[in-house]
Design a protein around this nucleic acid. Structure first.
Length: 552
RNA sequence: GCCCUCGUAGCUCAGGGGAUAGAGCACAGGAUUCCUAAUCCUGGAGUCGCAGGUUCGAUUCCUGCCGGGGGCACCA
């Protein structure tokens, strides 16, 4: 917020300079105002002179001098301006500027960090989308938390968000699930059975079979259809998945069933539409989509010679429905194993006359799980995977969420169970939460001693002048811009890193300075500082769906 | 073979066209008569995978190579 203020002034100087003939408008919008890495280089620095000099073929130092001259009129904001290094202009703010962030934060409260840059754009965030064939694995967990945090960021920045779970309960996978369940059912009744070659081997299938036996007895032993087994399994597993998601604090607005696309003729309609456009042809008994028309190496089958569609076709139909439902932006969270489906679907969208640029796919890499220092290889079929439920039993939702968001989506995430469980008191999430608890405790202590913050307008915020206090004020001032950039980039890990840094600044401050002292004015100013910190930490934690306990 | 992605401190990872590349863990030492020690302070640690190119300036962008992961089906 302070940076934006300074940027405006520099933009103004740029315009003045063009009028004065110092430079042309060639460098408009190309220079930046940023925070220097090192102390002594000012509160902010701009590469203005280097960028302008590059365009004008001038010497950066000369341009810098001209900018300094123009900035001299802004003594209300700037105390001092220096030219440094190859031509950086370092800006030192007037005292009191940083303190002005406190009233903004404290007045905004829960709203601090929120914005309306989304302009009520309708966004569909699709994530998890696991078919109900088994419990959610740790990999799904990462996706669930990532998707939900992205949705929270978008909501905080003024987007109208729908969280959607796309699933299919009609495909081959589900048939195998039903057959697996029937096999276990017969097995547990002591009857002859054949377990499907690629069946689901998890214990949960046995549990479902047992449930069927206690509900139905052996009444299903002669049933030829797989339907009753499949339906039972689906119902139990979906309930389980939803329960897991609820434990993570994740709730979907909509579950979209792939099967409904067939029932409503939407899949056939895609073929018909593409065929009418000449983008589909028959070969070897299959139906092909001319993806080569969209820059791909080969055409793709969308209906197999058996008459069954491939996954691409309903995926394309589904995405068309997203457009038809009126979304302005579609965000898909996929695991890296689904990366290959993306170009096909985007080509389909384009072929149907919609703008693929409105679809953003966030690909996240796998979770590598370490148990006892050894990597656990996971496979859904063989059921030797760690479920999100098991993880939650061990570490709880706050730790799980925080850990899943500690890495950017592009990076593989190493989840060390030994670290997350046995040494949980050393987890970074507690470090941040402890900061919040300390802040709450300080407020309580102050109240117990009869010291209140008093009116914000009357607080002597100018008393906040220590290096640590200025660090904290600067850090908090960045928060709204951080939330915006994290939302636009769909990168919630930035919030996690910010929180860790802010908490570190606060813990350090706490150990060096006393908030509550004999100096009542100073105490009050510092209590307001703490109040602002509490707001920022809590708002940040809320963005990633982690709780902010007041005692620990 | 082709496509995507990653390669930064002993380990796990941030960062990213600019001025001296950061954090946590681990390791060593220290801090509490006082607001929660789940905290803090001090210390060492790096050819930013390799080689070219673009640029006033590259760890960051481009190309190639090497290495890890994922994907290239009439599986999803």
């Amino acid at each position: 917020m302070i940076r934006a203020r300074l940027k405006k002034r520099i933009d103004h100087c740029f315009a003045q300079g063009t009028e004065l003939g110092y430079w042309t408008e060639a460098a408009a919008g190309l220079y930046a105002v940023e925070e220097p890495k090192h102390a002594g280089q000012g509160d902010y620095a701009t590469n203005f002179a280097m960028v302008v000099a590059g365009k004008e073929k001038k010497k950066p130092r000369e341009v810098a001098a001209q900018l300094v001259e123009l900035l001299a009129a802004h003594t209300d904001l700037l105390a001092r301006v220096e030219v440094a290094g190859p031509g950086f202009v370092n800006c030192f703010l007037q005292e009191g500027v940083w303190q002005s962030v406190l009233p903004e934060i404290c007045t905004a409260g829960d709203a601090f960090g929120k914005s309306d840059i989304g302009r009520e754009k309708k966004v569909l965030v699709e994530f998890v989308s696991a078919n109900p064939t088994g419990p959610l694995s740790v990999g799904h967990g990462r996706q669930a938390v990532l998707g939900d945090a992205i949705a929270r960021l978008l909501e905080a920045t003024g987007h109208l968000v729908t969280r959607e779970y796309y699933y299919n309960d009609a495909g081959r996978q589900m048939r195998v699930l039903g057959e697996s369940t029937r096999a276990r059912y017969l097995e547990q009744l002591g009857l002859p059975f054949t377990f499907p070659e690629d069946g689901y081997q998890g214990q949960y299938i046995r549990d479902i079979a047992q449930e069927l036996i206690s509900e139905q007895g052996d009444r299903l032993k002669e049933v030829a259809e797989v339907a009753p087994f499949k339906e039972k399994a689906e119902q139990v597993i979906f309930a389980d998945i939803n329960n897991t998601l609820a434990r993570l604090g994740i709730r979907f607005d909509n579950y979209y069933n792939e099967h409904s696309l067939y029932e409503n003729g939407l899949v056939d309609d895609v073929i018909a539409t593409l065929r009418a456009k000449g983008l589909v042809y028959d070969k070897d008994g299959a139906v092909w989509f001319k993806t080569t028309e969209f820059g791909m190496e080969q055409d793709r089958v969308i209906v197999k010679s058996t008459g069954e569609p491939t996954y691409r076709l309903p995926d394309i139909a589904y995405h068309r429905e997203k457009f038809r439902r009126g979304y302005d932006w579609m965000v898909n969270i996929f695991g890296s194993d689904h990366i290959a489906t993306v170009p096909d679907v985007l080509a389909g969208v384009k072929a149907l006359g919609y703008d693929p640029a409105k679809v953003t796919v966030v690909i996240h890499q796998f979770v590598t799980l370490l148990r006892d220092g050894q990597q656990v290889k996971m496979s859904t079929r063989k059921a030797n995977f760690v479920t999100v439920d098991e993880l939650l039993d061990e570490v709880g939702p706050d730790v799980a969420r925080f850990f899943f968001l500690m890495r950017k989506a592009d990076s593989q995430l190493e989840f060390d169970l030994a670290l997350a469980t046995q040494q949980s008191q050393e987890n970074p999430v507690f470090y941040v939460q402890y900061g919040n608890a300390r802040l709450a405790s300080i407020a309580k202590q102050a109240a117990a001693k009869g010291i209140t913050r008093g009116e914000l307008a009357e607080a002597l915020l100018a008393r906040l002048t220590t290096e640590e206090e200025l660090h904290l004020l600067k850090a908090m001032a960045v928060f709204p811009a951080l939330v915006e950039s994290a939302a636009v980039a769909l990168e919630p890990h930035r919030i996690v890193f910010f929180l860790q840094e802010l908490a570190a600044h606060f813990h350090s401050y706490y150990n060096k300075h006393r908030v509550i002292s004999e100096d009542v004015d100073l105490s009050r100013a510092r209590l307001w500082l703490c109040e602002a910190l509490r707001i920022v930490i809590r708002n940040g934690l809320t963005l990633i769906g982690v709780s902010a306990p007041e005692t620990m």
